[in-house]
Every structure is written in structure tokens, then in C-alpha cells.
Write a protein that binds this DNA or RNA. Structure first.
Lengths: 192, 192
DNA sequence: GTCCCGATCTTTACAGTGTCAAGAAAGGCA
DNA sequence: TGCCTTTCTTGACACTGTAAAGATCGGGAC
């Protein structure tokens, strides 16, 4: 093996399959996504994926990892663009909801409990989850200290904020709320 | 037809199929639920459901209607058990999250955007949705007037609260948050 | 009562899916 | 050159959703 363990006939089929899955998930619910369709999109036979993934679920997990990385990156860049603790938290929330609104199926894929059981996530996913939790915790703690409030409240407040933002994201992603309802709702809750 | 339009050979197969679907959804994700499995559970052939539902989706929709009715009933009885506006709102939130925690698959079924497109829900579903929105709006307005605040803020506040409660429900239902995190989060947000 | 009609259910069939086992092809190493 | 391992393809099986054709049964017409 010269460069990569997965660079033989096709080039890098594993990455190509994840690419195809992420692309297809852009227009289709993960539940409807078929392994054979992904294989067709990648230009290989319907059984080729089984040499890189144990089953359909493993392929979807890998696609979910990629989406989660994008999702986290969107939040991190949004937070990094501001200095004020209030503005950072709002930016985080808007990035969170913005991703769900722009990529509803990818958002659903990221949080699908059957693909990523919250008990034992894949190692790669666990790193992303930890980084996301740290990001939120840091923003909340910074806000509390900037306001001179007890930082011990941070965990409960972080859960509450996560709930609010996640709920708005899910409702907007599923079409139950229009995107325009997000900003007023966030402002009504964040006390700005 | 003597009594009901659907009381011929089997008794009332339509209702029996919905029953079976709701029962199966208690232990299985709606995505995994197969039409043939529901038919087997009801003791009929795999094609029998097609005389009562256009396709698998219509059966799941009917099951979702039933779950949504239960979900709404849980909220209504919780609210009716209290007089204080603050307590009523908290009770509503706890009933909302409680249903998701106790019946995560049914909760997912109720909010599945492919089964109930928020644009045009079924007539039966539309009634339930309207009742649920009215219930929340009434609770929020009552709270604002009891506190002497501007009732014009009600819509934005209702969306924000819906977001918080829905997000906590989704996170708990999917296992991303433990149930114990709900009460502190709700109290941290409702300002009690 | 008998006959027929229509609603209900079953049987059969087909395409599509996930998954596995066996065989072909192609790169790396002797 | 020739072999061996990895990669991919082909073929098969059980399962799914769905449609069409046939069987079965209740209720109204005579």
C-alpha cells in the first residue's frame, strides 16, 4: 500500500461513498436513502460499499460524522466572529438554527439516535460532541461572569439554552416554524 | 352498512391496524415499522391494509393522529390540574417532555415532517394542532396578564417557550439529555 | 327464500432493498 | 514472471411496498 490503505482500484471509494451520501442527504431524508443508490451515485456495484462499511448504518454514521463536523465548524466560526459574550451566544444560536434550516436532513442525520446512540458514539463523533459541549459551556460561563452572576448556574443554563436552540432548530428544520420566528424568539429568551 | 362503514368481515380492521401500529411504535422506530408487520400483528394478509389506507404513509399518519391526540390530552389534563398561571405553564412543559420521554417513537411519529407536512396536515390533525396552539397561547397570555406585562409579547414568547420545551423533549427522547436535566433547565428559563 | 352486487380480504406477482457468498480483476512483492 | 492480497462484481436470498386478479361474505332486490 503506497499512500492510503484505501487507494486501490477506485481511488478512495470510502471517501467517495461518504461524499455521495452527504450529497444525496441534501435532497432526501436519511430514512429514504438507500445503500444501492449511494453505490450508483459513486459509480460502483451495489455490494462494493460492504468492503468499507459493515452495513448501511455504518455508512450513514460516517456521513453523519461529516455533517456534524460541518455543523460544529459553523458554530465555531460564528462564535469566533464576536467578542461580546451576549453577541457570541446569539451567534452560536443563529448558526445552530441556520444549519438546521439550510440542511434539515443533515441535521436530522446528525441527531438520529439510531445511528449515533448517545450512550456510545464512535470515537470520531465523541470528539466532535465534546468540542461542541465545550463551546457552549464556555460561552455560557463567559456570559455569566461578564454579568457578575454565579457561574455555578452554568450547567442548568447551558441545558436550557441548548434545549431552546435545539428546539427552534428542529421546529424550523421540520417546517413547523418559519425562519423569521427564530430571532424574536431568541431575543425574547436571551434577555437582550 | 348497518353501523359503521368499516364493520364487515373483520370487525373494524381500520381501527385494529391503527391499534397495532401504535403498539408496535411503542418498541420500534417508525422508520423501521413495516406495513406487513402491522398486518401480521392484526392477523390479516399483507395486502389487507390497502383497502383502508392508500399506502404505508397513510397508515402511519393515522397512527400519528392517534398519538397526537394522546399527546394533546396529556398536556390538557396537566394544565387543567393547576390554577396559578406559572404552575400551568410548567405543568404543560413537563407533560410535553414527559410524553416524549415515555413514548419517544410516538413523539417522533407525531412530528415527522414527511408524514405530516406542516403545510397541509390532514383535517383531523389540523384540529389537534390548532387546539394545541390555542392551549399554549392561552397559557402564555394568562401568564403575561397575571404579571402585568404587555400581551403583545405573547406570540414571540410562545414560540420561544415552544422551542425550549420541544428541544428538551427531543433531546430527552433521543437520549442526549437525561430526564433529570429537564426540571432545572425549565426553572432556569421560566424565571421561577 | 334465492340471486346478485359490492365491499372486504387473500393470493399471486413484480420491482426494489439490505446483505452475504463466490468469483473476477488488478496492484504490490517475490 | 508469477503469486497473493485487496478490491470490486456477479449472483442469490429474504424481505419490503405496491398493484392486479381472484375468492368470500354480508345485505338489498325480487
Amino acid at each position: 500500500m503506497s499512500r492510503s490503505a484505501a487507494a486501490y482500484h477506485h481511488g478512495d471509494l470510502r471517501a467517495a461513498l461518504v461524499d455521495a451520501a452527504v450529497t444525496l442527504v441534501e435532497e432526501q431524508s436519511p430514512a429514504r436513502l438507500s445503500l444501492r443508490e449511494v453505490a450508483r451515485a459513486a459509480g460502483v456495484s451495489h455490494a462494493a460499499p460492504y468492503h468499507h462499511f459493515a452495513d448501511r448504518g455504518e455508512l450513514l454514521k460516517a456521513a453523519g460524522d461529516r455533517c456534524m463536523a460541518d455543523f460544529l465548524a459553523a458554530q465555531e466560526t460564528a462564535v469566533a466572529a464576536h467578542d461580546d459574550p451576549d453577541a457570541r451566544l446569539v451567534a452560536l444560536g443563529e448558526a445552530y438554527v441556520g444549519y438546521a434550516a439550510a440542511h434539515p436532513h443533515a441535521f436530522a442525520l446528525v441527531f438520529d439516535p439510531e445511528l449515533c446512540p448517545p450512550g456510545d458514539p464512535s470515537p470520531e463523533r465523541a470528539v466532535l460532541i465534546a468540542r461542541n459541549e465545550e463551546l457552549l459551556a464556555r460561552c455560557v460561563t463567559d456570559l455569566l461572569t461578564a454579568r457578575g452572576q454565579d457561574p455555578a448556574r452554568a450547567p442548568a443554563l447551558a441545558d436550557a439554552l441548548w434545549g431552546t436552540v435545539h428546539g427552534l432548530a428542529a421546529l424550523v428544520g421540520d417546517g413547523h416554524l418559519p425562519v423569521g420566528a427564530v430571532r424574536p424568539a431568541l431575543e425574547a429568551r436571551l434577555g437582550l
